[in-house]
Design a protein around this nucleic acid. Structure first.
Length: 283
DNA sequence: TTAAATGTTTAAAT
DNA sequence: CATTTAAACATTTA
């Protein structure tokens, strides 16, 4: 569930258990999922857990970072004899036997175990010195994330982009952290058609969009991110977030618009991603 | 059987 | 060269 609120939720949860732990051994089950030298972190202590947009950064003693990108289906599960903390793409792996068939990397800790699972193998785990990680192309090209830019800066960035507003919001090199769910919901909040070109909004629309985006991102974090609606087994164990119960338009095709204007949420593909909107209030 | 899935990454086109 | 679009990546589920 890789979007800023979901990764932030994972960060907050892991911050409760990882600091102070020693990574005794790293077991790589899928070579494609691991980049770098595992010996850089073996035997080292975890200092803290940070995040940059959708990238999770685990701070390791000795100026080392462990960067983890979830992409579409990555998940991180911490398990010890007392509890299990899971975040990322919601699947039965959260509560089933570990390692599962999707486990790609296992971090054996002095107390507990951290599993990196990734169904589609798009995600990656990477080790490096803090400098090496900072120099990564991905981080170098990342734009600012919404909470750290104000309304004026937000407008300044978007007015230079000549593509549909929803795609502009999802362009990580311009604005980072926003993915498909929150881009869809932010457009609804601001009553803007997702297809509208980013450089053609009115002053008020930039303002509404900025506020709408901040609102849905904050709400996403508040509810612990989104978890697939069909992941009941996860809710039963208290391992899932609840933003999905507050979706404005995402995954609501055919349902009534929340504004009670009688609109029915439509869905179509734009940029290869599901795009949802209400033809009445986002016409 | 075909389509789609919370994201980049790379190649191609403009 | 900078910007935008399309395909690719690999697997599972509807």
């Amino acid at each position: 569930m890789p979007e800023l609120p979901e990764i932030e939720t994972v960060r907050l949860q892991l911050s409760e258990v990882l600091p102070g732990r020693i990574i005794e051994r790293v077991e790589v089950l899928k070579q494609k999922s691991f980049i770098g030298d595992k010996q850089l972190i073996e035997g080292k202590k975890v200092i803290g857990v940070d995040r940059k947009a959708k990238l999770l950064l685990i701070d390791i003693e000795g100026q080392i970072d462990l960067a983890i990108h979830f992409k579409m289906t990555g998940q991180l599960i911490y398990a010890d004899k007392n509890r299990r903390i899971a975040g990322g793409h919601p699947t039965g792996d959260f509560t089933g036997d570990l390692p599962s068939k999707h486990t790609r990397v296992i971090f054996h800790l002095d107390r507990g175990t951290l599993y990196f699972n990734d169904q589609r193998i798009f995600g990656w785990v990477r080790t490096g010195t803090k400098e090496e990680i900072r120099q990564m192309k991905f981080l170098q090209e990342l734009g600012p994330e919404p909470p750290e830019i104000d309304e004026a800066e937000f407008q300044k960035i978007l007015i230079k982009i000549k593509k549909p507003i929803k795609l502009a919001l999802m362009d990580q090199t311009r604005i980072s952290g926003v993915g498909n769910i929150y881009a869809n919901d932010a457009c609804w909040e601001a009553r803007i058609n997702p297809r509208r070109l980013a450089n053609t909004l009115t002053r008020k629309q930039y303002s509404d969009l900025y506020n709408g985006l901040i609102k849905v991102l904050k709400e996403g974090i508040k509810y612990g991110g989104a978890t697939a609606a069909d992941a009941k087994y996860i809710d039963l164990h208290g391992l899932g977030g609840h933003y999905q119960e507050h979706f404005r338009v995402y995954d609501r095709e055919g349902e009534e618009c929340l504004r009670e204007d009688g609109g029915i949420i439509h869905k179509y593909a734009m940029g290869g991603r599901g795009t949802y909107f209400c033809p009445k209030c986002q016409g």
